[in-house]
Computed example of a mutant assay.
Amino acid sequence: MGSNSASETAGKPIRCQAAVCRKAGEPLIIEEIEVAPPTSWEVRIKILCTSLCHSDVTFWKLSAGPVSAFPRILGHEAAGVVESVGENVEEVKEGDIVIPVFQRNCGECRDCKCPKGNICSKFPEDFYCGMPRDGSSRFKDKNGEKLYHTLCVSSFTEYTVVDVTHVVKMNPDFPIDKASLLSCGVSTGLGAAWRVADIEEGSTVAIFGLGAVGLAVVQGAKLRGAAKIIGVDLNPEKIEIGKKFGLTDFINPTTCGEKSTSQIIKEMTDGGADYCFECIGLASLMQEAFTSSRKGTGNWKDCNTWNRDAWHTVKH
């Protein structure tokens, strides 16, 4: 679609395919749905690429609580092209390549303007199952039943509608399949290393778990000039891919014999790593990361929790 001409579907509902989760823990069903046109401050996006985050699995299993709502459309890591925009949207236009992000940034409230973080306080956080301004839905199934959103994104569909505060314009030359990872995993890991920990040149760093978030921490540590970057993972195949991102050392806890991972890290770093990052979300690993940190000056970060500051690094 051209960026200078109005889309033929602008202002009209769009029928498309989506992966719908009817009940917690049940397989997703590919269904025809209806996606409403964007209203004021909203953007409708044609999803070109989406990826699976472990948080999607968490929401898929969630059978109770304020953010458990079914039937729903999951997914929050994606990249796409703007199909149409509603009134008052100036940041993006039809044809722009964008990534939808679950951590909004209005750019106006006190928290979004704060250089130390960007936990937007303009909209209530209890609307994560719908649009952020009023909690309503832009999805219906073929019977007219409402479908709930996930994290204000819902990318497991051919088209989605998001608030403009959840959209970031991308360079059109950036690879689409890689751009989708910027929505969550990469920004969390890179932001934790670059912005939250603020790793200094020459530091020693240990990363527990070399998935998408962990590898992003590795990349962030390398960009910050860390002297020793230690990866900890049970999968030996992570060694080579970790080296491509900047890993200098690798530990497989199953091959450590009688020594604990923290003992080995302390030996490798002369007393403990300056920075430790837990990127899995296990209490035992959080303790191990804490124990592996240098006494007095060492720091550890739990990257499994949604890093509120991480996206600020990529966006700005």
Results as ranks from 00 to 15, higher is better:
residue 73 I to E: 09
residue 37 P to H: 08
residue 71 P to N: 00
residue 76 H to I: 09
residue 49 C to S: 15
residue 22 R to Y: 12
residue 39 T to V: 05
residue 34 E to Q: 06
residue 44 R to G: 10
residue 33 I to S: 07
residue 22 R to H: 15
residue 85 V to R: 02
residue 79 A to G: 11
residue 61 K to A: 06
residue 44 R to F: 04
residue 37 P to I: 03
residue 25 G to T: 14
residue 26 E to T: 15
residue 28 L to Q: 07
residue 32 E to I: 00
residue 78 A to E: 07
residue 81 V to I: 15
residue 23 K to E: 15
residue 59 F to G: 09
residue 63 S to C: 01
residue 24 A to W: 09
residue 19 A to S: 06
residue 55 S to I: 12
residue 26 E to K: 15
residue 70 F to N: 02
residue 66 P to T: 00
residue 36 A to F: 06
residue 70 F to A: 02
residue 34 E to F: 02
residue 50 T to D: 12
residue 69 A to N: 01
residue 31 E to P: 03
residue 57 V to S: 15
residue 61 K to T: 08
residue 20 V to R: 12
residue 41 W to M: 14
residue 36 A to C: 07
residue 48 L to S: 13
residue 45 I to E: 05
residue 24 A to V: 14
residue 54 H to Y: 06
residue 34 E to H: 02
residue 37 P to N: 07
residue 35 V to L: 08
residue 33 I to C: 10
residue 58 T to R: 06
residue 22 R to M: 10
residue 71 P to A: 00
residue 46 K to D: 08
residue 76 H to Q: 09
residue 78 A to F: 08
residue 77 E to C: 11
residue 80 G to N: 03
residue 77 E to A: 04
residue 25 G to S: 06
residue 84 S to Q: 01
residue 28 L to G: 08
residue 55 S to V: 15
residue 84 S to D: 03
residue 84 S to A: 04
residue 59 F to D: 05
residue 48 L to Y: 06
residue 25 G to I: 11
residue 37 P to W: 05
residue 19 A to I: 13
residue 65 G to C: 08
residue 44 R to N: 05
residue 69 A to S: 01
residue 24 A to K: 04
residue 35 V to D: 12
residue 71 P to K: 00
residue 21 C to D: 11
residue 70 F to V: 02
residue 69 A to L: 00
residue 73 I to K: 08
residue 55 S to R: 14
residue 36 A to I: 00
residue 33 I to K: 04
residue 50 T to I: 04
residue 59 F to N: 12
residue 20 V to Q: 10
residue 58 T to M: 14
residue 24 A to T: 14
residue 21 C to N: 13
residue 64 A to P: 00
residue 59 F to H: 11
residue 39 T to D: 13
residue 75 G to A: 11
residue 39 T to R: 15
residue 25 G to Y: 10
residue 56 D to E: 13
residue 85 V to I: 01
residue 28 L to H: 09
residue 66 P to F: 00
residue 43 V to P: 02
residue 46 K to I: 01
residue 77 E to V: 08
residue 83 E to P: 00
residue 69 A to F: 01
residue 46 K to M: 04
residue 59 F to P: 03
residue 67 V to Q: 12
residue 80 G to I: 02
residue 61 K to W: 13
residue 35 V to P: 14
residue 64 A to V: 06
residue 40 S to N: 13
residue 55 S to F: 07
residue 27 P to G: 05
